[in-house]
Amino acid sequence: MASTPGILTEWPWKPLGSFKYVLVVPFVVHSWYDMLVKDKSERNMVAFLILPFLLWRLLHNQIWITLSRYRTAKGNARIVDKGIEFDQVDRERNWDDQILFNGLVYYLANYAFVGASHLPLWRADGVVMAMVLHAGPVEFLYYWLHRALHHHFLYSRYHSHHHSSIVTEPITSVIHPFVEIISYFLLFSVPLLTLVFTKTASLMVVFGYVTYIDFMNNMGHCNFEIVPNYLFKIFPPLKYFMYTPS
C-alpha cells in the first residue's frame, strides 16, 4: 500500500475476497442466454466473447508469471539480482482485480454503445487507426500521466504502492490503487472508443490491442531482458510501440 493512501485506494469488491467474480455472473448468463435463444442476426457476439477473453488474459498473465519466476529462480540474466520477498508476493496477489474491472466495464460498454455490440472480425483501417492513436496521443498522455503520478502528492498517496516492489514481476505492472487503474483504463480506452465511434472497430483489433497492452506490461516488468538492444538502433521508432525492462 502507498505510504499515505489516498481516497479510492482499495478495490470496491475487496470484502468479497475470492467471491469477487460473482460480479460478472449476471453479465455472463445474459450474454450466453442471448446466444442460445436469439436468431443469428440478433446475437451479441462481442458480449459472448468477453468471458473467453477474460480467461485468456488470466492465462496470458499466468504464463508470464511462471516464466518470470522460473528465470528468477534460475538466477541468470536478472536485471535486479535479488530474490522476491514474501511481502511482495502477498501484496501482488490481487493482480487479477484489474482484469475483473475491465471485464465489468466491457460488458457495460457493450450494452451502452450501439456500435460496440456487433463488430466484424477484421478491419484493416481500424488496425492502422489504433496504431496511430497509440503511438501518438496515448503515449504522449501516458508520459505526462506517469510524470504526474511521480509528483510527491500523488506518489505518496497512490503510485508508491506500485514501486514498493523492488524486484519486479510481470504482474507488478498492474499492481496499483483502484483510482490509478481507472486512470490507465481511461487512457488506453481512447483508441478503442475512437474505433467504436468511427465504426472502424473489429473483434481482432479490440481484443488484439488489449492483449498487446498486457504483453507490453508483462514484458516491461519481468526483470529479464528479451528484446535485443540493437533492434532499437536499427529501427528507432520501435520505442514508440514497445518498452523493455531495462
Rank of each mutant, 00 (worst) to 15 (best):
Y240L: 15
I166N: 02
W95Y: 13
V105Q: 01
L192F: 11
H161E: 13
H60C: 11
K233S: 13
F86C: 02
R93N: 13
L51F: 12
E92C: 09
A124Y: 11
M129E: 03
Y155N: 02
P236R: 02
D87R: 03
T172H: 06
P15A: 06
T200R: 05
N223F: 09
V210T: 10
S189M: 09
N94Y: 04
S117Q: 14
H162W: 01
N229D: 11
Y142T: 08
L54V: 02
F140V: 12
K233V: 06
Y142L: 13
K14Y: 13
V89F: 03
G126E: 07
N110T: 03
V24M: 05
V167P: 01
Y184C: 04
P245R: 00
D81P: 01
R147W: 15
I50G: 05
I171F: 10
M242Y: 14
Y33G: 00
W11N: 14
G75P: 05
G208F: 09
S41N: 08
M216S: 11
S156M: 07
I175A: 02
Q62Y: 08
K199I: 03
L193K: 00
P191G: 05
S160C: 06
V28S: 02
V127F: 14
L145G: 13
M131I: 15
A77F: 09
Y243T: 13
L67S: 12
L187F: 09
H162A: 02
Y240M: 11
N44Q: 12
I166P: 03
G75A: 03
L100Y: 06
T66E: 04
L67F: 12
D34Q: 13
G220H: 11
K233M: 05
Y21D: 10
F86K: 00
P228Y: 02
D87Q: 09
Y106E: 08
D87Y: 04
L51G: 04
I63M: 04
L59N: 05
V37G: 09
N76H: 12
Q62M: 00
P228E: 01
P228Q: 04
V227G: 03
L141F: 15
K82H: 04
E85T: 14
